[in-house]
Computed example of a mutant assay.
Amino acid sequence: MSISTRTRSKLRTSSKPQKKLEEEFPEVSEIFNVKEESQEEFLKWLNKNKNRKKSIYIRSESLTIKGLIKLQEKDSWLSSDQINMYLTHLNTKFEHIHSFTSYFYMRLAMGGYSSVANWTKKTEIYKKETIFVPINITDDHWILVAIFIEEPRRIVIIDSFGSVTDECATEIEENLITWLNKEYHKVSNENNEVGNPINATLDLMFDKEEAPQVDGYSCGVFICMFARLIAENIEMDKIKNIVKFEAVEKFRQVMCIELWNYAE
């Protein structure tokens, strides 16, 4: 992963002693538990599929075997294909959430609402509890936006590195508020209703506290992990503590095995 000077200056070495995630947070231990037999079955499957050009599919998203393997590599930066595949998997696993792919916000920011108006043709956004929007900022860092639809409505920008500027956060908020209003008015017009403007409070996570990412390549894993924990209805304050443990390396394996299990 290539990182900007601003981001590079924030790299640091974690001085905190490693603790056992399952001991501190037993309620999430099952999420991070990759069974040994599953790992063995996965390795057997890999041995049978020598052709690395083969792909697995979840809905319209695809991922090569090589891309699946790289999910487990400690120092690898996740590609949009890997992130989109896992977030699409969450859409199949949890009915109360909806995850967009990484192309959604890019098109919204560049082309306005009309460029993404059809993205929700088959999804009733205002019947969901949480909307996830992955964003690649400065071409070298992944962040996640979680939109909590139920009142009090919130837009939470989750940056595992704590590098999002106020200017960037404000731009994201304005774009997504505009999108939310357009979506709401579209539904209101279909139902012959008149609605009030949609508002939401903005929360920049890890803005005034230590961010959990201590390297220059695991941001993609972090946003997938944040989305999964939020989808599991884990409280945000608890999530902040969970991700400061050895959760990232564990979650790489979780993503790999879950995608393989679903696709197979």
Rank of each mutant, 00 (worst) to 15 (best):
Ser79Val: 09
Ile147Phe: 01
Tyr105Cys: 06
Val133Thr: 08
Arg153His: 09
Ala146Ile: 03
Lys186Trp: 02
Phe132Thr: 01
Thr178Asn: 12
Thr170Cys: 03
Ile137Val: 15
Ile137Cys: 08
Trp119Ala: 07
Arg107Thr: 10
Ser160Ile: 08
Tyr86Gly: 04
Val164Gly: 02
Gly162Cys: 09
Trp142Asn: 01
Thr165Leu: 07
Trp77Tyr: 15
Thr101Gly: 15
Ile137Gly: 09
Leu144Tyr: 06
Ser163Cys: 10
Asn191Glu: 15
Val145Trp: 00
Thr92Cys: 14
Cys168Asp: 07
Val164Pro: 00
Ile172Phe: 07
Phe100Ala: 08
Val156Arg: 12
Thr130Tyr: 03
Glu95Cys: 11
Asn175Arg: 04
Cys168Ala: 10
Val187Lys: 01
Asn91Cys: 06
Glu151Lys: 10
Thr178Leu: 12
Tyr105His: 14
Tyr105Ala: 06
Lys127Gln: 11
Leu176Asn: 01
Val133Asp: 06
Trp77Ser: 08
Val187Thr: 03
Ala117Thr: 14
Met85His: 05
Ile149Ala: 05
Trp77Cys: 11
Glu174Gly: 03
Gly111Ser: 12
Gly162Tyr: 04
Met85Ala: 13
Thr120Asp: 11
Asn189Ser: 12
Cys168Leu: 09
Pro152Lys: 02
Ala146Ser: 15
Ile157His: 04
Ile149Phe: 02
Leu144Asp: 03
Tyr103Thr: 14
Val116His: 01
Phe132Ala: 03
Glu95His: 11
Ser160Leu: 03
Tyr126Ile: 10
Ser114Val: 12
Asp166Thr: 04
Arg107Met: 14
Glu95Asp: 15
His89Leu: 15
Tyr126Ser: 05
Ile157Gln: 02
Arg107Pro: 01
Val116Asp: 06
Asn192Cys: 13
Tyr113Ala: 13
Asp139Thr: 13
Arg154Met: 13
Met106Trp: 10
Glu167Cys: 01
Phe94Thr: 05
Leu78Met: 13
Lys93Asn: 10
Glu171Asp: 08
Ile97Arg: 03
Ser163Ile: 12
Phe148Gln: 07
Asp140Ser: 12
Asn118Thr: 14
Ile177Gly: 04
Tyr103Phe: 13
Thr92Gln: 15
Ile97Cys: 06
Ile172Tyr: 03
Ile83Gly: 00
Leu90Asn: 09
Asn118Trp: 09
Ile131Asp: 01
Val187Leu: 07
Asn191Trp: 12
Arg107Phe: 13
Ile172Ala: 03
Ser188Gln: 00
Thr101Tyr: 02
Tyr126Thr: 04
Glu129Gly: 07
Glu167His: 05
Glu174Leu: 10
Thr170Ser: 08
Glu167Asn: 10
Glu190Met: 11
Phe148Tyr: 10
Lys122Gln: 15
Leu180Gln: 01
Leu90Arg: 07
Ser163His: 06
Glu193Tyr: 13
Arg153Leu: 06
Met85Lys: 09
Ser163Gly: 04
Asp140Arg: 00
Asn136Lys: 04
Ile172Pro: 01
Ser188Lys: 02
Ile147His: 00
Lys128Met: 04
Glu151Asp: 11
Ile177Cys: 05
Ile135Leu: 08
Ile97Phe: 04
Ile157Met: 08
Gln82Arg: 05
Ile131Glu: 02
